[in-house]
Amino acid sequence: MLELRLLQGSLLKKVLEAIKDLVTDANFDCSATGFSLQAMDSSHVALVALLLRAEGFEHYRCDRNLSMGMNLNNMSKMLKCAGNDDIITIKADDGGDTVTFMFESPNQDKISDFEMKLMDIDSEHLGIPETEYEAIIRMPSQEFARICRDLSTIGDTVVISASKEGVKFSTKGDIGSANVVCRQNTSVDKPEDATVIEIQQPVSLTFALRYMNSFTKATPLSNTVTVSMSNELPVVVEYKIAEMGYIRFYLAPKIEE
């Protein structure tokens, strides 16, 4: 038996909007730790890892570990039927082939339940080691989204180069080229507006902008984004989900042939 009650139901709605275009079907894993997901896009270039910790739920009951295969587009359709202020409860029976999403309006005058069919998904789980990254950039998530969107109008790939001087985003296309440099800036009124660059050594990696733009669909989840890079490793683009966990996107770099 599984029963997870999330007071801030809008968080789950935002999580689905952030991942449903990248991944079609995925297994949600439920354990004593929390509600989590790891899935790759169909071409195995990008990976998304989600964790919503048990402590972040108002009520969290998970009698035994359960993996529930869901079509994310269908799940998104159901969650769109929940109001932004609704409380969302996820319910499932051990060994059942459905999951129920229950939506309660804030003043309890409307209660809906939507039952969705589960599916068997043969998904591959990758082991991602804890890594000390050579460059870690924390910046306002809206600024990062803006840069990715702007550059994708010029080119298909972005070179992200981080050094002590700052982080440079560069692209080239048929019509020309573009560079955006962000310098460390901690003299801001609100800490979430800061750009903080931690560098062990300079890093420069090339990525497909299409994926970066897809990751920025998680922007409504967090005011800040953290981009962690090491030479010759996938980048990690992380959005923290307040008091609950995170959504991390990993993207394999483009390599010289």
């Binding site: 990758l126 082991g127 080691p129 090339t206």
Partner: peptide
């Protein structure tokens, strides 16, 4: 010319 690397060339299956 650059080629797109796969996630599986960096991380092993569990």
């Amino acid at each position: 010319h650059s080629a797109q690397a796969s996630m599986k060339s960096f991380f092993k299956s569990k």
